[in-house]
Amino acid sequence: MSSIEIIALALGALTIASALMVVLSMHPVRSVLYLILTFFLISANYVLLNAQFLAIVNIVVYAGAIMVLFLFVLMLLNLSKDNEPRASNIMKLAASLAAGALVIVLVAALKDAIYLPVVENVQGNSQGLVENLGQLLFTKYVLPFETSSVLFIAAMVGAVLLSKKEKQIID
């Protein structure tokens, strides 16, 4: 086993473990902290795959912006055990059955999976850098790139529409 494979295995195990801890830990703030850890570990996986720019963006957007929002919301909500909605036992049973079936399907699929041969990239280590990504985005993929701006405008208009205070509500 080469050193890269060992690192990849260790990183993968750590990522899965911390992702599990997000769901398993009882305290919401602790969950969020584990989530941040998960994001950092995912970024490390990206670096391992030669996607350096994606790794940085992942940290900036997810660990930076979105997690701060999460923490804010948690602190504003004042969560405690008493006001947490209780799920009935049937619900719990159904949820675990569904999730268990999903896990079985996924594991079975991964067991027999036929993987595509790995393509050596031409540009070597610099493949995932901003320069190459920008080249692609502004030439080959310019249409999806521009179309995503339509999505952002629509989302922005929607956000303003929803968050603007109405006169009727004030009085």
Binding site: T147, S148, V150, V157, G158, A159, L161, L162, E166, I169
Partner: peptide, 19 residues
């Protein structure tokens, strides 16, 4: 992208009657 552009305005519009 099409799916998201289709859905996101509708999420907002469904809640247009804020009161």
């Amino acid at each position: 992208l099409g799916l998201e552009i289709l859905s996101i305005p509708i999420y907002v519009m469904a809640g247009a009657r804020k009161d």
